[in-house]
Computed example of a mutant assay.
Amino acid sequence: MTLLASKAAPPVEQAAPARKTLARRLVPYGYLSPTIVLIVVLMVVPIVMVISYSFRDNVIVQENSVFAGFANYTKVLTDPDFLVAMKNTAIFITVSMVAHLVLGLAFAMMLNTQLLSGVTKAIFRIVYILPWLFTIAVIAVIWRLLLDPSGVINYVLHSLGLINQSVNWLGDPGMALWAVTFINIWSGYPFFMISLLAGLQGIPNDLYEAAAVDGTNWFQRFVHVTLPQLRPVIISMAVLDLIWTSQQFALIWMTTGGGPLNTTEMLSTYTYKQAFSEYEFSTASAAAVIVLLLTMVLAFFYVRQQRER
């Protein structure tokens, strides 16, 4: 018996280090578990529920919903209002992204120039970054007052003789989309400016000095030195801006509500109206899934670009 006990002891001694190794490997997952639980509860579960709703009919409104297959997706994709929202969203995000890039780069280069003193640069930085400090609600209220037919914008233009009568910028079907796009550009360009300014300050001066020695002018240095060095930042910011702008809701809802005559209807406002105005939660879920897929395409290109960097 003693001999058998002595032979059985070593496996018990070997099991203890194995348990310690397993416990050591599980420690990182213990630290990550609160975040994982939050992601599952706040993201994964709602997304799965919305996807399931999109394949059923009369969800939430009625207790016994029935499986509808792709009927909700067919209804959404053939809805003229959805197609108008798709077109408006494409125009809105494309124009906003291009304008954000151009204005952000222009102001960033102005703040990075050696021709201005430090005090002047500090003043301009405060002025340029002001639009980014306001919340969307404040921005919407300010611009609704400014663009009102009796507002400051019409008064100034009328005083300069540029218009003969007041323009209802947010109520005119021909002007509303461009008005909200302008507001979005105004509120979003500081983020581009700050990011591009950081990129400009990270470009070595040796590159500019070498280009100057080769006899290049400022435009050639901008094309062959500045832009290539800023390319990773520009691509990352452009993709992120497309994702963020495509999900813009508060600004549109608080300025025009998608009107007039659906001229400012976006995918976000269309989905909201389907859910909380029409109470078509199945259709709203299908529209939300379509928006999710479009956003995932943009996110894929962003992640791929980051990996290449």
Rank of each mutant, 00 (worst) to 15 (best):
A16S: 02
P10E: 10
E13S: 11
V40R: 01
S33E: 09
Y31D: 04
V12T: 14
K20H: 06
L42S: 15
P11G: 06
L42C: 15
K20M: 12
P34M: 12
V37R: 09
P10M: 02
I39Q: 04
P11D: 07
L32G: 14
R24K: 02
V12M: 04
G30Y: 01
V37H: 04
A5C: 07
A5Y: 08
S6P: 00
S33L: 13
A5T: 12
K7E: 12
A8C: 07
L4Q: 10
L32I: 07
V37N: 09
T35I: 12
S33V: 04
A23I: 03
L38A: 13
V37M: 15
L32E: 10
K7S: 04
V37Q: 12
A15G: 00
A23P: 00
P11K: 06
K7Q: 09
K7W: 07
I39R: 07
I39C: 14
T35G: 15
A23D: 01
Q14S: 00
A15M: 13
I39F: 15
A16C: 01
S6E: 13
Q14K: 09
S33P: 03
A9I: 12
P34C: 11
R25L: 07
T21V: 09
L4K: 03
Y29M: 05
Y29A: 14
K7V: 11
K20P: 00
R24C: 04
Y31I: 08
A5V: 06
V12D: 01
V44Q: 08
P34A: 01
V44T: 06
V37L: 15
V27H: 00
L42P: 03
R25H: 06
Q14C: 00
K20F: 01
L38N: 08
A23T: 01
R24I: 02
L32F: 08
A8H: 06
A8Y: 04
R19G: 06
A5D: 13
A5W: 03
Y29E: 02
V44S: 08
V40T: 15
K7P: 00
P11N: 11
P17A: 04
P17T: 08
L26M: 14
M43L: 14
P17D: 05
R24Y: 03
L42G: 02
G30A: 09
A23M: 12
A18M: 11
Q14Y: 06
A16H: 00
T35V: 15
Y29R: 04
E13R: 08
A16N: 02
R24M: 05
V40A: 15
V12Y: 11
A15V: 07
K20V: 02
T21M: 10
R19A: 13
P10N: 11
M43S: 11
P34N: 06
L26S: 10
L42H: 08
M43N: 12
T21E: 08
T21Y: 00
L26A: 10
R25Y: 13
I36G: 07
V41W: 11
P10K: 05
L4E: 10
L4Y: 05
A9C: 03
G30T: 10
G30N: 06
V41F: 08
R19K: 04
P28V: 14
V27I: 06
V41A: 11
